[in-house]
């Protein structure tokens, strides 16, 4: 009698918890990613701009470096399935001079799917193609709205970096955009993380890039195992 009662209760409880686990409402990482990014955006004030030409929201740093988020990842999808890399989903723009000074020969940068490099007027443009998802029209209303769509459609790219107490979006080939989970407790409000390998292949001595740190970073691989990898880091303090 007892067993007949206990078994369904236990099964129901176990099922409920597993269902809860798969429920979007319990996706705390996505939720807090949005709220913490909003804090970063709010702290950036007028450095957040809408680019009509690119149909993207641009977040600038005090030093003038920018990251742009497309308000619709489907915008650059072509009929052949190949994305128009001139209309990136995410784009880093930063001063190319330190890389050139460290030996960069841009033509030697290796071709990597989903990534495009470009130097224009002394700016290094790092284009990332993340997907072809159709964003809600409301995404255009604000950076936070665009970002929320990015998180929704590219949830697997969003993760938590325990070591730095950062959130991050995997941009592909080891490149990331990270921001502080709690700006009040973190001096690195935003960190750009670049894979140094393409630059090394293009003749750059990564230790000599001014304004960028070349370091071993503790992280976890896709299986969750702790690993140490070489990265080029550019931290931003928005305060």
């Amino acid at each position: 009698m007892k067993i007949r009662l206990i078994v369904p209760i236990v099964a129901a409880l176990a099922a409920i918890t597993i269902v809860l686990g798969s429920c979007a409402a319990t996706d705390v990482v996505a939720k807090v990613a949005n709220t913490s990014f909003k804090a970063v955006a709010d702290a950036s004030g007028d450095r957040v701009k809408w680019s009509e030409e690119d149909q993207a929201w641009v977040l600038g740093s005090p030093a003038g470096d920018t990251v742009a988020f497309s308000s619709d990842f489907a915008r650059n999808a072509s009929s052949g399935g190949m994305a128009d890399m001139d209309k990136p989903d995410v784009e880093f723009s930063f001063d190319a001079a330190p890389f050139v000074a460290a030996g960069l020969d841009v033509v030697k940068l290796p071709k990597i799917e989903g990534i495009k490099y470009e130097i224009d007027e002394g700016r290094f443009m790092y284009h990332f193609e993340l997907g072809s998802d159709k964003f809600s029209p409301d995404a255009k209303k604000s950076l936070e709205a665009t970002f929320a769509e990015l998180v929704r459609t590219q949830r697997a790219r969003v993760g938590y970096h325990e070591k730095l107490d950062h959130y991050g979006i995997k941009l592909g080939n080891g490149n990331m955009f990270e921001w502080a989970k709690d700006m009040s407790k973190n001096d690195k409000d935003i960190v750009w993380v670049l894979n140094p390998e393409p630059f090394i292949a293009a003749g750059v001595d990564p230790a000599k890039i001014q304004g960028w740190a070349f370091a071993k970073v503790e992280t976890k691989d896709d299986a969750g195992k702790t690993i140490f990898v070489d990265k080029l880091l550019k931290p931003f303090n928005l305060k």
């Binding site: 206990i6 078994v7 236990v10 099964a11 409880l13 176990a14 099922a15 409920i16 918890t17 597993i18 809860l20 686990g21 798969s22 319990t26 996706d27 705390v28 990482v29 697997a156 969003v158 993760g159 938590y160 970096h161 325990e162 976890k220 896709d222 969750g224």
Partner: peptide
């Protein structure tokens, strides 16, 4: 993935531990 979906990961563990406790 524990870091990407911590709550999902935790709920899955709870779901698995309930029958064991029972």
């Amino acid at each position: 993935n524990a870091m990407n979906y911590p709550l999902r990961y935790a709920f899955l563990e709870i779901g698995l531990v309930i029958p064991v406790i029972a």
